[in-house]
């Protein structure tokens, strides 16, 4: 490796480490804030539901949310070391965690006012990209998709005689 290649590598590592860590911390903060705001809207993976007493279903609609998140240069390098030695690949764990939580938050944002989200499913897929041609190194970008059925209720007003 000549010296300019080494310099580029070091610069990319430093950039990935500093900017990547800052971006991740910021993202986690924003995820936690939004999750706290939407805490009172339950999501369940089961499909059966009993309509509560005195309520009527107003609307049921499918809601989806998705996010494509990529990891940084530094973490990708760490992961490639992990692939050599084996063990827990922590840098990719946080990537998938962020993608899934972001997808769930976006799904909830579509279901404003809904009492419950039934039958939620999460789908994760690897996104191909046009960079790193032929190297097949794995992009390190994942898409998480969350979808479910949001149910809105109406109060049944007692009939006045």
């Amino acid at each position: 490796m000549d010296i300019s290649g080494l310099v580029i590598f070091v610069v990319l590592m430093a950039l990935g480490y500093i900017a990547g860590t800052m971006a991740e911390r910021k993202h986690y903060k924003s995820i936690e804030r939004r999750e706290a705001a939407m805490l009172r809207q339950p999501i369940v993976t089961y499909e059966d539901m009993e309509t509560p007493e005195g309520k009527r279903v107003r609307k049921a609609k499918m809601v989806t949310g998705s996010a494509v998140i990529s990891t940084d240069y530094f973490k990708r390098f760490l992961a490639s070391l992990r692939f050599f030695f084996g063990g827990r690949v922590k840098s990719y764990e946080s990537l998938l965690d962020r993608a899934r939580r972001e997808a769930i938050i976006r799904m909830k944002q579509e279901a404003v006012g809904a009492k419950i989200i039934l039958g939620m499913r999460i789908e994760t897929s690897n996104i191909g990209s046009s960079n790193r041609k032929g190297k097949n190194k794995g992009l390190g970008a994942v898409e998480a998709l969350a979808y479910g059925t949001a149910v809105w209720f109406d109060e049944i007003r007692p009939q006045t005689p």
Binding site: G16, A19, A23, I69, D72
Partner: peptide, 8 residues
């Protein structure tokens, strides 16, 4: 964007 990570 892939270098510094984050949402694409």
């Amino acid at each position: 964007k892939n270098l510094i990570g984050g949402e694409l």
